[in-house]
Amino acid sequence: MAIDKTFRSAAEAVADIPDGATLAVGGFGLSGNPMALIEALLESGATDLSVVSNNCGVDGWGLGILLAAGRIRKMTSSYVGENKEFARRYLSGELELELTPQGTLAEKLRAGGAGIAAFFTRTGVGTLVAEGGLPQRYDANGNVVQGSSPKDVRTFAPGGVENEYVLEESIVTDFSLVHALRGDRHGNLVFNKATRQFAPPAAMAGRVCIAQVEELVEPGEIDPDQVHLPGVYVHRVVEVGTDIEKRIEKRTVRATEGEA
């Protein structure tokens, strides 16, 4: 039997994501945001979502559109970024936030997809990440009403050098949403540049991975050596085309020669 994981539309691909679902979403800043899937999820009406992503987009773009609509209950992120609404909702008690070091977050997602329950890392030792008390929810008056729990810290000596390491549990979500440059009908994906930062581990972490691709090709057209994520991790593929908007989170301009 031929394997064909393609769906006709983003709306069809996300139609069964229910209220209260957990989602891992690719994106590094605004690079690789799966906008067609995010917009379709907004239209579907799903709410009370718990989202794991490096950041939450910006006001009016990326995950920011779900946040502004009040659809997200909790974010697990490493970066609040340029999203003022994200900061406002967190500090006013409207949003739960689990801040996680960026590399740790990527590994928690990858480990979840690889079937690894937990791992020890030096990142966070000696901080609130390990000791607990990192604010996760405030009330309307700015008081901390929920803090993170302390984590197991142990001493190991890889290479003969003793150091303390903190235990981090992996992340597995109900669904994952990612954007890829190219994909085939079997779900093999190729990502472009910075999108490779978080899209592959986010995709791996979802029990059901939904990928939007700019170009859909037939199986065998992608050189196996160029596949960044094998189709075993991908369950649904939607072609969105190349005529899509790709925003930049924050523009900076380098002064040209002769300028002050």
Rank of each mutant, 00 (worst) to 15 (best):
I3C: 08
R8T: 15
R8G: 15
A11C: 11
A11T: 14
E12L: 08
A13Y: 04
D19K: 07
A21I: 06
L23I: 06
G26W: 03
F28K: 09
G29D: 12
G32A: 14
L37P: 10
L41W: 04
G45F: 02
T47E: 06
D48S: 15
S50D: 14
S50F: 11
S50T: 15
V51I: 14
N54P: 03
N55M: 11
V58E: 12
D59R: 06
A68L: 01
R71P: 08
T76A: 04
Y79K: 10
V80P: 03
V80F: 14
E82Y: 11
E82R: 12
K84H: 11
S92T: 14
L95I: 05
E98L: 02
P101H: 14
Q102W: 01
Q102K: 09
Q102Y: 06
E107S: 12
L109K: 02
G112L: 02
G112P: 06
G113P: 01
A114I: 00
A117Q: 11
A118I: 05
F119C: 14
F119I: 07
G124W: 08
V125D: 02
L128A: 11
V129T: 02
L134K: 03
P135N: 11
Y138N: 03
N141Q: 14
G142L: 04
V144N: 09
S149E: 05
P150M: 03
P150E: 01
F156P: 15
N163R: 13
E164I: 00
E164A: 09
Y165N: 02
I171N: 00
F175G: 09
L181T: 00
R182C: 04
H186R: 02
G187L: 01
K193D: 14
R196W: 02
R196S: 12
A199D: 01
R207H: 12
V208T: 15
A211Q: 00
Q212H: 06
E214C: 11
E215P: 10
L216H: 03
V217K: 13
P224A: 12
P224R: 11
D225T: 15
R236G: 13
R236C: 07
V240M: 05
I244V: 15
E245M: 06
K246A: 07
E249L: 07
E249H: 05
E249W: 02
